[in-house]
Nucleic acid binder design. Structure first.
Lengths: 243, 243
DNA sequence: CCAAAAGTGTTGACAATACACCCATGA
DNA sequence: TCATGGGTGTATTGTCAACACTTTTGG
């Protein structure tokens, strides 16, 4: 920041955003992918994204791109959890030119429709289970892997899991988020106690209940609470903490 | 990433790196600041940083700038802990032009000399206690605050604290890092047990000992161990986890 | 009545705290 | 021998994982 600001002293880089939009559906973590229409990587799947406009911040650009690609209502896009992941700046990450990309992670609930049919172009955007998302364009496989690992960690010490749930959810659904992202089974009674013992994690919706699996006792409904941090954390079991 | 790559389709942004170089000295967290020589913010203190060169990644640029500003030996700069913090992209963060900056946090041990006299220009670079670093140029106060909070959190669940220590250190010095960054006192016996009970956090240096405060029993020396994560975490006390 | 899902209770192992105490060194 | 910092021991307290058990629904 102490260099001379000669307009020719710096190389003009293109700056883009890339989005790892994640959701939990049917017991598997899914990511929103777009099929590329042109070279390079024509026909390959890629993360949605695009250029930052001259008067936009990266976050504004990310929300705009998300709205364009998914066709979600603007107020929904405004509300959902969007978080800066990392910036990818390897000189050759795009074969044509110098592109620096600010990557974001977005967490959305399981959207009712296959969604993501950005503008009726039904074959262009798809939810793909993250384990089947291979052969991605550019360095998007790295971005996706970083997003997965970040989300996994954040579930441990933040209240982020509710971002994967609809506005009202059962504790069973919340537990399923943890189990899906971590790939481990959790003890239901203990999970329940832990969540309810954390002030501000969830708030009970008075009197409401929902039949979840068709059978079984109706479950009480909860809303996300005001808390964001999780003290003490909810650590995933049997994961490298032998001591 | 699915837009057309017309060279005129994107606005050419300048891309820079900014560095929050932190150290612990004399019981206070310090940050490395540079006094600006030109407008805007001439005479104000700022975080070190500069433009990314055409064939550099952001991390490479950060290490190069760090070496230039601090005058540290290249192999030291190569080894120290450098971590991407966040990218700052508000359109008006630089009054002259569009500058997107990738911020990094660097953790260094208390350097023997006042250091940071980049090229003998003794008044240009200085270690400043973070609490006295006010009136910074651009949005650097925000970057510094983000770096502080990130480092504070990372001490809880990673082995990062050793990055603030010299290659060999005592447990008292390690504890001082925690106490300085968190601003809280820790119980020495319990801290000691916690650290030693975490496999790979530190390794004893056989037979070595050092007089720390001049007086008192010589303390055993330790090296950073191979572990990076801290399971279970070392939570700061009395900090919002009443339940 | 059975299966399935929600929710409660209880117990034992283990971890964290608080604090008393001992050790080695310099002045 | 006293102050200072390093290091050990221990009792109490709390937390968490495991699992048995009850409740409420649909078939």
């Amino acid at each position: 920041m102490n260099a001379v600001y000669d307009p020719h002293a710096f190389a003009p880089f293109a700056v883009t955003v890339d989005l790892a939009v994640l959701t939990v559906r049917g017991g598997a973590l899914h990511v929103l992918l777009i099929r590329r229409g042109q070279e390079p990587y024509a026909g390959a799947w890629a993360l949605p994204g695009g250029f930052i406009l001259p008067r936009e911040s990266a976050e504004t650009a990310a929300r705009r791109e998300l709205a364009e690609e998914t066709g979600l209502a603007p107020e929904l896009v405004e509300a959902l959890h969007l978080e800066q992941l990392r910036t990818y700046s390897e000189p050759d990450r795009d074969p044509r030119m110098r592109v620096v990309s600010v990557a974001f992670t977005a967490l959305v609930p399981d959207l009712p429709e296959p969604a993501a049919t950005g503008g009726g172009d039904a074959d262009r955007a798809r939810w793909v289970p993250v384990d089947e998302a291979v052969g991605l364009a550019f360095d998007h496989a790295v971005i996706l892997a970083d997003a997965r690992s970040r989300v996994g960690s954040k579930l441990e010490y933040t209240c982020l899991a509710t971002a994967f749930c609809p506005p009202e959810f059962t504790l069973g659904e919340l537990q399923a988020v943890y189990e899906t992202v971590w790939g481990t089974a959790l003890d239901r009674p203990n999970f329940r106690r832990k969540v309810l013992a954390t002030p501000g994690f969830v708030e009970a919706v008075p009197g409401a209940a929902r039949l979840t699996g068709g059978r079984g006792k109706p479950a009480a409904l909860y809303r996300p609470g005001p808390a964001t941090a999780l003290h003490p954390p909810l650590l995933r079991p049997t994961e490298g903490h032998q001591r």
